[in-house]
């Protein structure tokens, strides 16, 4: 039985309508991935109970929590702007969610949590003295301290800079693995989602586009939007290949194509005489940009392209047939 179930969540926004149902398993780390303005944060707030504008039903661990007030839901949340309580120090912030716990036990747990987020000894620090990364980790510790049934994270990295993000997201993954808390993580950063998620749910304009593991979504995107959203790739219009009349376009990843000059296999699909437009050295290989009949093609190549015209070979089983947008 799924741990979290959201049924028929609906809300009308200015440019789109949120209309979604999904569920999560216990202990999994599900990322909700989507472009800005797709309704992800609203969804999260609705689950937490702090946004009352979404209609629908919420079930947690089999219980209907739709009309239960926020403070009784035992749903923790980590916010984009940390939302630490300025009038309290780190310790008091963390201990805010500890209910029915004797004083020494509170202290012990606080230290343990601080260690878990790699900030030992920070207990007495003032909240406004913390850096962004430190603040977010304290926010995390605070949410975990309340022993929530499920932890919601609303783009927690957005306010931090890039190197910090990488380190912090692995911290979050570690905490997840250690505490086994079910986590629902909202982000617009594909790399982040791919790095830590057990499963990813892709949203666009309020609707669920796709749900699956990162591998599944990357390898078998259900539509062009998901395909483009989950990684680089090239799109070829169907009339040019007449391969599968039911779909309009073919899509393939740069690493699935090869620039070579030799005899093609039966299983290869060839794009002849593509123009080399530019190429970038990525450190491990080259990302080459070509133009084929006016369409942009991206191919990864071990060698630097020598000539200005090249043939592109794609293995037919790597071609994805999708509908055009």
């Amino acid at each position: 039985m799924p741990y979290l179930e959201c049924r028929n969540l609906k809300r009308v926004f200015q440019h789109f309508t949120l209309d979604i149902s999904f569920s999560m398993e216990k202990g999994e780390l599900l990322c909700i991935l989507g472009p800005s303005g797709s309704g992800k944060s609203t969804l999260l707030s609705a689950i937490a109970g702090i946004d009352s504008s979404v209609s629908g039903q919420f079930l947690l661990d089999g219980k209907d929590i739709t009309s239960i007030p926020v403070q009784k839901r035992r749903i923790g949340m980590v916010f984009q702007d940390f939302s630490l309580f300025p009038s309290m120090n780190v310790e008091k912030n963390i201990q805010y969610g500890m209910r029915d716990v004797p004083a020494e036990e509170k202290e012990r747990q606080t230290e343990k949590l601080l260690e878990m987020v790699s900030l030992p000894g920070y207990a007495k620090r003032k909240v406004n003295e913390l850096s962004g990364g430190e603040a977010q980790r304290i926010a995390l510790a605070r949410a975990v301290a309340a022993k929530p049934q499920i932890l919601l994270l609303d783009e927690p990295m957005s306010a931090l800079d890039a190197p910090l993000r990488k380190r912090l997201r692995s911290t979050i993954r570690q905490i997840h693995d250690q505490t086994k808390i079910t986590m629902l993580y909202v982000t617009h950063d594909r790399e982040e989602a791919f790095a830590i998620a057990d499963r990813i749910m892709i949203m666009r304009s309020g609707k669920l586009e796709a749900m699956g593991t990162p591998q599944e979504l990357y390898r078998n995107p259900p539509n062009l939007f998901v395909a483009n959203f989950t990684g680089e790739g090239s799109v070829i219009k169907v009339p040019q290949i007449a391969y599968n009349p039911a779909k309009n376009v073919a899509f393939f990843r740069p690493e699935d194509a090869v620039i070579k000059k030799c005899i093609p296999n039966e299983t290869d699909f060839v794009l002849k005489n593509a123009l080399v437009e530019s190429y970038e050295f990525t450190g491990s290989d080259y990302m080459v940009r070509l133009s084929y009949k006016g369409q942009e093609i991206l191919v990864r190549s071990n060698q630097r392209p020598e000539e200005s015209i090249a043939d592109i070979y794609v293995s037919k089983d790597k071609l994805l047939m999708l509908d055009a947008e």
């Binding site: 007030p69 403070q71 839901r73 035992r74 749903i75 309580f85 805010y96 969610g97 209910r99 309340a146």
Partner: peptide, 9 residues
């Protein structure tokens, strides 16, 4: 609201 997610009223 954050406070309430931590269980306080």
């Amino acid at each position: 609201l954050a406070a309430k997610t931590l269980g306080g009223d």
